[in-house]
Design a protein around this nucleic acid. Structure first.
Lengths: 345, 345
DNA sequence: CTGAAAGCGCTTACAG
DNA sequence: CTGAAAGCGCTTACAG
């Protein structure tokens, strides 16, 4: 049994003794304070190296220091969109020497509130949140707390807080207008989770475009799962107002619709055009490849971290800052456009 | 300016004073110690509620308590496979009242080592790690440290530690044998990241199956990106040993191969059969749908957390426990099997 | 430029 | 069953 394994970790006191100085000198050296004689600092650094000393984070925090950690709460880490956001968050947090606590709410406000609670009291310096229900009352209490919060993707409806989101409405309009340009007039809107403000905005964008084009819009379809998607589409296409194009308002609905169309034997791109909101990498692998509104998922993550850190460091004078990021339309084939030239060999 | 915002958080002392008892009694009540008169406990709980008291985590840890947090380090959070693992880890950690630090190494051992360092000294009670390089020397030092570590997916090669992984070799054999049963003999193996032990095992499984079937195996292809994939495949299919089937050893190679085949005008499923290792949800959306070896990604996450917590709680007497999870073959169309019946309406 | 004192909020022995 | 003392490892004033 190696005794070294059981050896107690060196403390700041140990370093002070080893270097023959007072504890404060060690503390100052570590924290890069001015007023430490270079010669003394050298001795201290040498002792730190020799003892393999690392500051105890818990002790530091007890004396009121920042934890240099932030919390991130998303509905589902394995979701394509949120996993990209999470990766970006972690990435720019690391660039700022911040660690991130990751939690999933499973779209359950109770779990979410509990996670916020755990994080708040851990404590973290700030929280990045994708609210599962932006109208839940508990949000009101957390924004008045002492932990800064910035929402990602879904701004709160019951309170005002820092937020970073995407141009949902104009993104939807880009999609619908592209379909209109193709000459389509019977454009149906299909969504999932249409209770979310984000999705409502996209639906509003759809209606806005239709209205401007002086085309009557169809009642939008809200899908709750893959099975219901098939039934709903089957009914929609059998009815008298059979659409010639579809705007799917989020990636879940896009995927469900693609599967349903395939099962129903309706050819996407020829029988019916389709443009989705939220682009996913594998859309290029589907035949025909899927045209979609691309959200800057990584940027959403990066920007929100920066905004939170600025808030933590008190760099804002304003009560709340809202950032809205632009989206772009990635044109592929499902809208009816010609396939791109394959790169020649 | 609301004064309540600035109000100092209640401490254990405040609660003691408010309840008219000593601090120890409050501490005991919180921690559920026996020997606290029910009447006293009631007073304490009431004071806690009234003052909205929450124990200070930092102070607790300073006195040697567990942090009730674990670290998770994966190469890439946005990767389909790792995002599912991460979600599962977070899920079962929460079920045990544990918080998880999430970090991405970007397959860089330097970043990874730095993250381990940060986590170790934060501290966390244990670390879940997907090593970017299972032979890196730094791994030796961390296994002898005081923080328990269990590897996920990729066991260490330079040291012995707890690990949770998947049956790579036999999984590859299932895939290749399925192809052999289809009558294919010229089966090529295509991989990415073939320096990883995990991938080597899959390649070994491929060779093993070929050897047993007394069929010569082709030299395996190692792809490093999408572009090289197309060039390599083009060459492979132009050569005299043009394969009639492909075994792709991980999801990156599967996707690159599918794109390359499409660009080269080679029909998957008819011109060449394909079975991949690592199943991804959207494989059902590709035409033809992709047959693949499915890894129990969620279970990998769940099991590894449980194993780590057991290690943290000292429930193991053994020096290291290795868990190997089985995989299954999900048969779809790219292998040459008939499409499943669409579910009738 | 440097150090001794006091305290952050809790818990572990030790006494009642 | 309950409490006063001491200490966990740091840092913030306060003195030199």
């Amino acid at each position: 049994m190696r005794s070294s394994v059981l050896k107690r970790r060196a403390t700041l006191q140990d370093v002070a003794k080893a270097a023959g100085v007072g504890p404060m000198t060690v503390s100052r050296t570590i924290n890069g304070h001015p007023y430490v004689a270079e010669e003394t600092a050298k001795k201290v650094r040498e002792a730190i190296r020799r003892l393999d000393y690392r500051p105890n984070h818990a002790a530091r925090m007890l004396t009121g220091k920042l934890s240099r950690s932030i919390g991130l709460i998303v509905p589902d880490i394995s979701d394509t969109f949120f996993s990209v956001v999470s990766h970006a968050v972690q990435d720019t947090a690391r660039a700022n020497d911040y660690l991130v606590w990751l939690a999933a709410s499973d779209e359950d406000p109770l779990i979410e509130a509990a996670q916020v609670e755990m994080m708040t009291h851990h404590p973290v310096d700030g929280i990045l949140l994708v609210p599962s229900d932006s109208r839940n009352a508990y949000l009101k209490t957390i924004v008045t707390g002492s932990t800064p919060i910035v929402t990602i993707d879904r701004p709160m409806e019951v309170a005002t807080s820092d937020s970073v989101q995407v141009e949902n409405r104009s993104g939807a309009r880009m999609a619908v207008e592209h379909l209109l340009q193709h000459g389509h007039r019977k454009i149906a809107c299909v969504a999932a989770n249409s209770h979310l403000l984000t999705i409502k905005e996209r639906i509003a964008g759809y209606k806005e475009s239709m209205r401007r084009a002086k085309v009557p819009y169809l009642k939008e379809l809200n899908l709750s799962n893959q099975l219901s998607a098939k039934a709903a589409l089957s009914k929609l296409f059998a009815g008298r107002s059979r659409p010639d194009a579809l705007f799917t308002a989020n990636n879940a609905s896009t995927i469900w619709v693609i599967e349903a169309l395939r099962d129903l034997g309706i050819q996407m791109g020829t029988d019916v055009a389709l443009v989705g909101f939220d682009d996913v990498d594998f859309f290029t692998l589907i035949t025909p490849s899927v045209t979609a509104v691309r959200q800057p998922a990584s940027e959403l993550g990066n920007v929100s971290v920066r905004q939170l850190l600025q808030r933590i460091n008190g760099e804002f004078k304003t009560s709340s800052v809202r950032t809205v990021l632009p989206v772009t339309l990635t044109i592929r084939e499902s809208c009816g456009c010609k396939p791109k030239n394959k790169t020649a060999e």
